[in-house]
């Protein structure tokens, strides 16, 4: 039976989850009595009316690794993440060593959520591509990216630190970020049409991509495991891949033939 309805501000609202979870766990409210919801999405038919959080009766302490783990796992798109993390919170509060037990099923599941989120964040660092647009105030760099999870705001620090002196915008379906060398603004979700249509430098980058590829070592499987096809549509260089693969064996055979003929030719 659900007794508490917790409304979070956003899908990545860690602070909201944390303060509610801390109060509920201190009062030892069981996990199955809480319904977690994001924003004003329609409430569950049987959802209780929101009511005040219990007043904590005791201090709650958690092991050092819990908060970073929860902060990451909470960005996952899995709708159960808030409840799973709360269940883990109740258990680590009693058994602080639990987080080190990498064979415990709940720990494993939450570790897996956090790992997926880390990978998604890492792929955004790697595969996001800016396009230069000229504006009245100088060049602006605009990127369109479609992350799998709610990572865009959590990833802002990386782009601010790296491109601190540039004006840039990152557009995603859920949200957008805009940096003007001093402040970061958040805007609504966007669509691919809002992004810059192209950038002449992409041709130079594609020339580099084609030249750095070694056709004698063709290994599309290794490429796909790190750069799955779902990312290709937003990577300018990916348009070259089918032709590079198709031509590779022929290029290698030609190189071997040429050296064989050169070796046989008199005078060399």
């Amino acid at each position: 039976m659900t007794r508490h309805l917790i409304r979070l501000d956003a899908a990545d609202d860690f602070d909201g989850w944390r303060s509610a979870a801390r109060a509920l766990a201190a009062a030892e409210v069981p996990a199955d009595q809480i319904l977690w919801q994001v924003g004003d999405q329609p409430a569950d038919l049987f959802a209780p009316a929101p009511r005040p959080l219990p007043t904590p009766t005791r201090a709650l302490t958690v092991p050092k690794g819990f908060l970073p783990l929860a902060r990451s796992a909470l960005l996952h798109r899995d709708p159960e993440r808030f409840a799973l993390l709360y269940a883990l919170l109740l258990r680590v509060a009693r058994q602080p060593g639990l987080l080190h037990d990498k064979t415990d099923p709940l720990c494993r599941r939450i570790d897996a959520l956090a790992q997926t989120v880390h990978r998604d964040m890492h792929k955004m660092h790697a595969f996001l591509r800016f396009r230069e647009m000229s504006t009245a105030t100088g060049p602006r760099y605009v990127a369109w990216f479609e992350p799998d999870h709610h990572i865009t705001r959590a990833n802002a620090g990386f782009f601010v630190g790296r491109f601190a002196t540039m004006h840039w915008s990152i557009l995603t379906p859920d949200t957008s970020l805009h940096w003007d060398t001093e402040t970061l603004r958040q805007g609504p979700g966007a669509s691919v049409q809002d992004a810059a249509p192209g950038d002449p430098l992409e041709e130079v980058w594609k020339a580099y991509y084609a030249a750095i590829f070694n056709p004698a070592r063709l290994n599309p499987k290794a490429m796909l495991s790190e750069m799955p096809k779902k990312y290709w549509k937003n990577l300018p260089e990916a348009a070259l891949i089918p032709d590079l693969i198709a031509g590779a064996r022929a290029r290698e055979i030609e190189m071997i033939d040429r050296s064989r003929n050169a070796a046989l030719a008199p005078g060399r």
Binding site: H122, H125, A126, F127, F158, V160, G161, R162, F163, A164, T165, M166, Y209, I212, F213, N214, P215, R217, L218, N219, P220, K221, A222, M223, E226, M227, L235, E237, I241, L244, I245, A248
Partner: peptide, 28 residues
């Protein structure tokens, strides 16, 4: 390091980032 305190661009985050993969499976 990062460029928050600088006049240019660039950062090092520790892990190293592969920005693309060529069809030979090697990272770029």
């Amino acid at each position: 390091r990062d460029s928050r305190t600088g006049t240019g661009i660039g950062s090092i985050t520790g892990g190293g980032i592969c920005h693309a993969y060529a069809p030979d499976g090697r990272c770029i």
